[in-house]
Design a protein around this nucleic acid. Structure first.
Length: 456
RNA sequence: GUCCCGUUCGUCUAGUCAGGUCCAGGACACCGGGUUUUCAUCCCGGCAACAGGGGUUCGAAUCCCCUACGGGAUGCCA
């Protein structure tokens, strides 16, 4: 057991952002890699923005991703409570230390942190007003990703709002001290806050933890970091869209990090990721989100699933689309999914791929229709081949193959002449599962009646 | 404006710390070919990058400086 203690400290806002999830993941990975502890701390100091549901979105998201915490809500621990809204006495106690050493003052009803250094006033372009600044000694941030970063704070900042609630900078630092946090792994957007935090650590007389500021995730197109509104930004949407948690987790682990053992597949078991995760592999530059790459990885995971798990994932999607219900035959469902899984790329579009197995009305793809008609009249082809199906005794893939081949030979042609038309009549598509097994699964009645409907 | 961080194929990245083995490797995407009854599978091949300039050096993607560009911060949000 190592001494490493890391924390994920989200603020419940009602959604679980992908960047936030990746921060949680990196903390979790580091804890699991080092044998340390992963702590979940809820930063709910902003009274305006907090709700109960907001918390469950976070918790559900973490659980879905398989990120378990050793201390925190529902897990307990010796350093609780783990909600900042319940830690007021701790903050009061630490604030008192600052007051006692003369590092605070009151202004406009709020309590401010006083930087040490020569004071002067200057016109600030951004605020467009004269403000008081401080020539403070630069603080040094030892960052595991970026190396040594120096930054000088020049403005005093608020510690406690006039409504009496402590702000992020104070509670974040106090809790990291009180909870014995050894490594702070967070997004690079916090790097410029870190100067303030180091000032506070110094004021408390405590050595700051090791920092690791990880690159941000940029939006797929356009400028700036991923924001709530961007497609793919919210973890809670992935589950509904039929993405596999392991694939999402694998993908986001690769955003800004790369394993040392290069050359291997990017699809990695979580244990492999844990094993090779370290700060050295973290990239400094920001990473752009790429849904195609995520989808490709997801497809790989999808195909690797055994049929039981695939059914478990797929059934809710089909049910949601109104394709199946409790009356649907289990064996039929299994058979259909067995055919579709090797072709599936997204669970989300599974109804496009195999919806026709469950309903007799399905869209006829116009491009495919045009493509087939160019060679021969599909109705003529189907009228020709229909009797083969009507007469077929055993309706299985091998038997049908033999009968279709015999039929083609009698005509002096190849089976391929009829196959595209048959597929199109039965599914409305140009692609899909292998045709012969598809015929078997659909069964004689469906095959015959669908061809008749097509002819009519 | 100011401060901080960054910059290798379209995208994620290897290589940068310890300069030569890199006319820069892999993956996704894209394009072409093959397998297959079809295809969103599989296999093979191709396209494609060291931001620009200066310096140090026998030698620079790698070290230094400048510029450009990108990102973040500059809240009594976190």
């Amino acid at each position: 057991m190592s001494e490493v203690r890391v924390r994920f400290a989200p603020s419940p806002t009602g959604s679980f952002h992908i960047g936030s999830a990746r921060t949680a993941l990196f903390n979790w990975l580091y804890a699991r890699h080092t044998g340390g502890r992963f702590i979940l701390r809820i930063e709910d100091t902003d009274r305006e923005r907090n709700t109960e549901e907001a918390l469950s979105v976070l918790i559900d998201g973490l659980r879905w991703l398989g990120l378990d915490w050793d201390e925190g809500p529902e897990a307990g621990g010796d350093f609780g409570p783990y909600f900042q809204s319940e830690r007021k006495t701790v903050y009061d106690e630490y604030l008192q230390k600052l007051k006692d050493t003369g590092r605070t003052y009151e202004k406009d009803g709020a309590i401010w942190f006083k930087l040490q250094g020569e004071r002067y006033t200057e016109y600030d372009d951004f605020k467009q007003t004269e403000i008081e600044k401080v020539r403070a000694e630069p603080v040094v941030i030892e960052d595991a990703v970026r190396g040594r970063v120096e930054r000088a704070e020049e403005l005093d900042f608020v510690l406690v709002r006039k409504d009496g609630s402590p702000v992020f900078h104070l509670v974040n630092v106090v809790d990291d001290i009180a909870m014995g946090i050894t490594h702070v792994i967070r997004g690079e957007d916090h790097l410029s806050n870190t100067g303030k935090h180091v000032e506070l650590f110094k004021a408390f007389g405590v050595a700051p933890p090791k920092f690791a500021h990880i690159p941000l995730i940029l939006k797929e197109s356009g400028t700036g970091k991923m924001s709530k509104r961007d497609r793919g930004a919210l973890i809670e949407t992935y589950k509904d869209r039929g993405f596999l948690a392991a694939a999402v987790r694998n993908y986001i682990s690769l955003l800004g990090w790369h394993p040392k053992n290069d050359g291997k597949s990017e699809k990695m078991e979580i244990n492999e990721i844990i094993e090779s995760f370290d700060f050295h592999g973290i990239h400094k530059g920001n990473a752009r989100f790429d849904e195609k790459k995520l989808s490709a990885l997801n497809a790989e995971y999808l195909r690797a699933l055994d049929i039981g798990n695939f059914t478990f994932m797929a059934a809710p999607i089909l049910s949601e689309a109104g394709l199946i219900d409790e009356k649907t035959d289990e064996d039929y469902l299994q058979a259909v999914l067995g055919l579709c899984q090797p072709k599936a790329r997204f669970l989300e579009t599974l109804d496009d791929l195999c919806g026709h197995f469950f309903k007799n009305e399905y869209p006829m793809d116009e491009k495919t229709a045009a493509k087939i008609s160019r060679k021969a009249d599909p109705k003529a082809l189907l009228a020709e081949v229909l009797p083969v199906f009507e007469k077929a005794g055993t309706f299985n893939a091998d038997g049908l193959k033999a009968e279709l081949e015999a039929f083609a030979e009698a005509k002096g042609r190849k089976v391929f002449d009829w196959f595209p038309a048959i597929r199109f009549a039965l599914s409305g598509q140009g692609g899909g599962p292998d045709l012969l097994p598809m015929l078997e699964v659909l069964g004689k009645d469906r095959v015959v009646s669908r061809i008749k409907v097509f002819l009519a």
